[in-house]
Design a binder for these strands. Sequence first.
DNA 1: CCTACCGATCGGTAGG
DNA 2: CCTACCGATCGGTAGG
Lengths: 195, 195
Amino acid sequence: MNGVANLSRKEQVIRSAAELFKEKGYAASSMRDLAQKLGIEAASLYSHIKSKEEILQTLCFDMAAEFRDSLDKVEKQNVSASEKLSMGIIGHVNVMARDLTASAVFMNEHRHLSNPHLRDFLLLRINYINRFKAIIEQGVASGEFKRNIDTKLAVMTLFSSLNWMPMWYSPEGSIEPKELGQQLANMLVNGLKQN
Amino acid sequence: MNGVANLSRKEQVIRSAAELFKEKGYAASSMRDLAQKLGIEAASLYSHIKSKEEILQTLCFDMAAEFRDSLDKVEKQNVSASEKLSMGIIGHVNVMARDLTASAVFMNEHRHLSNPHLRDFLLLRINYINRFKAIIEQGVASGEFKRNIDTKLAVMTLFSSLNWMPMWYSPEGSIEPKELGQQLANMLVNGLKQN
DNA sequence: CCTACCGATCGGTAGG
DNA sequence: CCTACCGATCGGTAGG
């Protein structure tokens, strides 16, 4: 009945679930594992959430919305394609760094969504990828990027490296999200080779 | 008792399992699912394999060995770092393209290995990554690559995009493995920017 | 948030 | 490769 307390406890459940799902995978995580993390009985979880999958839905769609919002802001900027690409990458890394655990779940566990949620999720994702692809194509059209690059390969390489960051990136390390995003953008745009 | 027939049937089991694990994930795949794919009863699987995890071990370690062998050959070549990097990438893509299903399992499902197998697998993987990193560092040392690149970021970006290929690459498409490997290498070395 | 419990399904074995 | 079966565990509900 207490909305605030319920919400707060629900958030604790979701956060703990994210850690569990990241560590063991969604399918291998049991509600009893989750309850134990929180020091309660499994049955008690259901006063905060409707089902195991509802937790996954919350995690996946909340992250998707944050990524989309980040790219919305970038697209409004009136800058060159390489700058836009940089800003998009930095934005993505920033969103990820804010919650690396949820990001890892977003990337690795979304396939356990049932339909129609899975279908909706995949539509959001392909849309997000296509917006990055459009930025690269703008760069090709304007002559900023090479004419002969494979834009699909380019965008999948970008998206892959963004998706894998939660696996190895630690914000406690020396490099900050903005710096990491800038370096990745720089590497993709300018390459490794000495010029 | 018939070694050849047994081996062949075992291989069918492992191949079907790879498809199932790729599609649903290891934990969400049941031995009854697998048996159904093969048109037999679940209990009958155990005349060909010892356990569910044994299948995963076979898939993961066989792929790991193929990737390692491919890189072995590249390291023996007496060529520049960027050529070595190219050849390493092409080799990796070739191994992957030979069995995209097993590659996807290798990438996504290895974490369900139990110890000591998981530990062994992760050691093989970090070793493989470090050998690519060494190639990049050679390029930096020789002046072929920029002095100020973040080699960890570079190698993780490379490894990420290699790992994600099974998710989107189809060899039935227009681009062949060798061509794909060359384009990826070219993109990482030379970047997207028009020079 | 708990106790008590449900039907379904899991990986795997015995014995043929 | 099958029938018959095991103990364990699963997500979730009833009722308080």
